[in-house]
């Protein structure tokens, strides 16, 4: 599988699309940091800025993975890998590792840019330990997100359809996140009166679960550097990774390649 990984990584970093995706994330970081810097009439804490550009990550990685994985089908180069006797499981996994590497590169560089630009401009209210913890949680999220979009792209096997479906799913996850976030953000009391929109009990647990299982929900928590449950966060992502690997290898293994 090492030879396939070498070929996939070469194709990935030789291709302009990864640099376009990176540029998109940097632009998002620049835009959001300048909005925070100039738009607020109070001193904005650094914790609000470090992971804020990641709100765009879902859309960018959806487009990128749809393009990257779909291109292997549209160019037909996936056929070269099969015809030369490589196992389909190896082909799937090596590209998945490539997608993980791209996801992590986009994430790490975006956060680095946000920290380097943010440090001199905003009030430093967080320590390295806290940032590192959220950074690690973010790593799980970006890996899960890349895996989900990769699974979809490999099952579809057509570049334009894959990009459309991945982008559609990214928006769906975003809207779901906005919905669950809005409900969970309600305070129990408003002006010392019980808030009728506040949900509690089993319903609240379900909403929290939905918010934690949704990678966009995790990004929302990451951007605010707050979490509902770090364990649930990590477990959800590990389940996404296992599902993407398991379902993907089975579906791709049986797929008729055109």
């Amino acid at each position: 599988m090492r030879k396939l990984l070498r070929a996939d990584l070469y194709r990935m970093y030789r291709n302009k699309k990864i640099w376009i995706a990176l540029l998109a994330m940097f632009s998002a970081a620049g835009m959001m940091i300048s909005m925070q810097y100039s738009g607020m009439d109070y001193e904005v804490p650094l914790s609000r800025v470090i992971f804020l550009p990641m709100t765009f990550f879902g859309l960018v990685i959806a487009a990128y993975v749809g393009f990257y994985a779909g291109e292997d089908f549209s160019d037909g180069t996936v056929r070269n890998k099969i015809v030369t006797g490589n196992r389909r499981r190896d082909i799937y996994v090596s590209q998945l590792v490539g997608v993980w590497s791209a996801s992590l590169v986009l994430y790490i560089l975006t956060v680095l840019v946000a920290v380097s630009v943010g440090l001199p401009l905003f009030a430093c209210d967080v320590g390295i330990k806290e940032v590192s913890m959220y950074f690690i949680l973010g790593c799980f999220t970006v890996l899960a997100m890349g895996s989900i979009f990769y699974l979809i792209s490999m099952c579809i096997g057509n570049r334009s359809v894959a990009i459309t479906v991945c982008m559609g799913l990214a928006f769906l996850m975003l809207f779901l996140c906005l919905h669950t976030n809005q409900i969970l953000a309600q305070s129990q009391y408003k002006n010392e009166v019980l808030n009728p929109h506040y949900v509690s009990g089993v319903k609240r647990i379900c909403y929290e679960l939905l918010h934690d299982m949704n990678p966009m929900g995790q990004i929302a928590q990451l951007s605010e550097m707050k979490y509902l449950s770090p364990v649930r966060w990590i477990v959800s992502d590990v389940l996404w990774l296992l599902a993407a690997h398991g379902i993907g290898t089975v579906v791709f293994g049986k797929k008729d390649i055109r």
Binding site: D75, G76, T77, V78, R79, V83, T84
Partner: peptide, 10 residues
């Protein structure tokens, strides 16, 4: 080696 329908090229 094979060329199936169209050549598979990047």
């Amino acid at each position: 080696g094979a060329v199936v329908e169209t050549p598979a090229l990047s």
